[in-house]
Amino acid sequence: MLKESTIAQQLDHRTIRTFKQQPVTAELISELVAVAQHTATSNFQQAFSIISVTDPAKKKQIAAVSNQKYVADNGHLFIFVADQHRNQQIGAEMGKTANRLGDTDHFLAAWSDASLAVQNTVVAAESLGLGAVILGSILNDAQQIIDILQLPQLTFPVLGLAIGWPDQKPQLKPRLPERFVHFENTYQLPTPVKPDLVDYDAKVHEYYDLRDANRRVDTFTNQVQKRLMLRPAKRAELLPVLRRQGFLLE
């Protein structure tokens, strides 16, 4: 029954953007952090950190970067950080001056550690009846997030996560048919792609119409097409910001 209920919970995942005026207790926050810490980690380096943002002024600044006003509202805000700074500091204290923790391999390990921890935290939060929204939008201005949180060298913000007690129950967002994402032995994308997505496009269109009839977003394929040329200005600066933080210098 536990297995079935966990899968049912995951299949029922909905992004929650509106939370009740009910705080998440310190005990629950600590429990969720413990869950994040028990996530699988590359080579047991535990190369991520979590920052709880409780300062209302900082939350407003991060909401502005995300262009999501609800980030500053109710709920608890985490920022998950790729962190090789801690391991560099450990090595320095043990007399090691050589440092390859900023290379691509170590950066990707830290990024995956942080990303996996986010998803584990979401599953745990939802099991407790909490809702969550993952915020990739913090990368709209990565340098500003670094400045707000005073992140040191060899750290980089990966994802935000806002959690709280849900004050809405949106519809389930339809996902791509399995044959477009699950292959056997080799990559086998059906071609052409778009004609086979007509029914899925219709479901996505209906989802957005029902969610907000005044703000229609037509289809999945049209959203993909728009993204081909869309890139917020500050996101074009991600590589220079990463290098200023000491990553990807090789």
Rank of each mutant, 00 (worst) to 15 (best):
A92N: 07
V198P: 01
G136K: 12
D141M: 07
S66Q: 10
A236I: 01
A57T: 13
D103E: 13
Q119W: 12
E184C: 03
P23K: 05
E184N: 10
E4N: 10
T18P: 00
L151Y: 04
A82K: 03
G136H: 09
A72H: 01
L28Q: 15
P190R: 06
A34T: 13
Q153E: 14
P152K: 08
L172T: 10
K3V: 07
K96F: 14
L77T: 08
T18Y: 08
A233R: 10
A236N: 13
L210C: 08
M94G: 00
A36V: 04
P195Q: 09
D105I: 13
W111C: 05
T219N: 03
S127P: 04
L151S: 06
V133G: 01
V71M: 05
A64V: 07
A98E: 15
P23W: 02
V122K: 00
A40P: 14
H38N: 14
F107M: 06
S66C: 15
L172D: 05
F247G: 01
N214V: 01
A110R: 00
R211T: 15
L248R: 02
G75H: 11
K173L: 08
D199C: 07
P166L: 06
K173W: 07
D147A: 07
D199T: 12
S127Q: 11
G75N: 12
D218E: 14
L101Y: 11
R175F: 03
Y200E: 02
F19G: 00
R175N: 10
T186G: 02
D212H: 10
A57D: 13
S42E: 01
F78V: 05
L151F: 07
P240I: 07
L248P: 00
L154D: 03
A114P: 02
T186M: 07
Q144E: 15
I50D: 07
E206Q: 15
Y70M: 13
H13N: 06
A109Q: 11
T186E: 14
L135P: 00
V81H: 01
R175H: 12
N140G: 03
T219L: 05
A117T: 08
V35T: 09
T219A: 05
N185V: 11
L161A: 03
A213D: 02
V65I: 12
Q21H: 14
I16E: 00
R17N: 04
D105A: 13
H76N: 10
L128I: 09
Q45M: 11
R14G: 04
R211L: 12
F183V: 01
K60V: 11
T186I: 09
L161V: 04
Q188L: 09
Q150H: 13
A47P: 02
L139R: 11
N43A: 14
N67W: 07
F183S: 02
V71A: 02
V123P: 00
T121G: 04
V123H: 00
Q10I: 13
T186R: 11
L239A: 11
